[in-house]
Design a protein around this nucleic acid. Sequence first.
DNA 1: TAGATTGTTAATCGATTAACAATC
DNA 2: TAGATTGTTAATCGATTAACAATC
Lengths: 215, 215
Amino acid sequence: MGSVKIQKTPTVRRLPTYLYKLLEMQKEGASIVAAPELARYMNLTEIVVRKDLAVTGVTGQPGVGFKIPELVKAIRTYLQWEIPSPAILVGAGSLGHALLGYEGFEEYGLKIIAAFDADPAKIGSVVYGRPVYDIAEMPEKLRGSGIEIGIICVPAAHAQQVADQMVACGIRGIWNFANVSLRVPDEVIAQREVIAGGLAVLSVKMAQQEKQSCD
Amino acid sequence: MGSVKIQKTPTVRRLPTYLYKLLEMQKEGASIVAAPELARYMNLTEIVVRKDLAVTGVTGQPGVGFKIPELVKAIRTYLQWEIPSPAILVGAGSLGHALLGYEGFEEYGLKIIAAFDADPAKIGSVVYGRPVYDIAEMPEKLRGSGIEIGIICVPAAHAQQVADQMVACGIRGIWNFANVSLRVPDEVIAQREVIAGGLAVLSVKMAQQEKQSCD
DNA sequence: TAGATTGTTAATCGATTAACAATC
DNA sequence: TAGATTGTTAATCGATTAACAATC
């Protein structure tokens, strides 16, 4: 049941943040960056940064730092983000709109090319340049397209059904924003995004902070 | 700089998912749940589930399981979610809309009571029942309100400025959806939500899966 | 050369997993 | 009693942190 285990998950999760920061620095004309600088930005120690960057295989210059373009390329290679993967999104509600409107995904190896919905009021519309099709048309739209990534933004109650349809249409990776755990075949990856997890961490940190300031 | 370290972060991140599932089971009339059942749902081993539930202080009945209402109460207490905290949201763009439209936050201890934006076209509007005020009015609207949580949904370029304003208005916890690392005073918590992290994990898992199926 | 940073090797810390007695 | 599940204690695994020689 999509039980692939990967190594260094914390590092993998941090890589997009490095990538984004490096691209920003590049825009500002920088070409070299040292670990301590990235560490300050990321709120990490410089040792963590060096270990993280090491997974990409890039080596820096002692006393100097790392070449930004080299790092950018290596992170993209490591994450398989060199060529953006085409993806479809199901559920053109408010969250679907937000994801369709986010312009940074191309930097993150993702290119959402179409959306699907079951609501007749939405079908046929265009959201941030992407067409919204009837979900019933998913099989024909995806056939032979080579699209392997599907994003689920439907209410929890419909998510499993949408996932089943996606799998039937050849989707191999599902990015799930619905509040349920999906059942998918072994060869399909389902990655669930639980934003409430971050809220829980915030709550506990605030409680702890409060406790400390009372000491 | 908001450098509170908390214990058992992985467990804390999982608690909202347990909570949501337990509430669902409760709606369906269940009153008892055993660790193996939750484990199957969460794609975890039952030992992890028992360790997770143990932090709440609830004890189960050997051979039977845990009382659902007791677990629900204990998780809420642990996360300080018994009484929803009032919060404000800044940035009524598409992501802001999505968060304002999400109805599950009350279960997660959060009650967004108002939004702020700088865009005259948005100021004065009402989004999912919440008023959108001019961001310039934040100080007066927050004064004496006791609101301690702020949610940032503005573009990265404006996020630091918004964070500074929030801090000046007495906000103690910031849930940051902008693509930047914020600088806040020691006594303020800034929790950044990096959804691209999940996408990175999905990408790496898909690559690994592909590699495996070729063996 | 001096100062800064890298990359490696070892030590610590914490989370997950395993084993098993206790309990309903 | 037999079957199932709990909770505890110990073992393993992996990530973070520390120490330091090597390099520009």
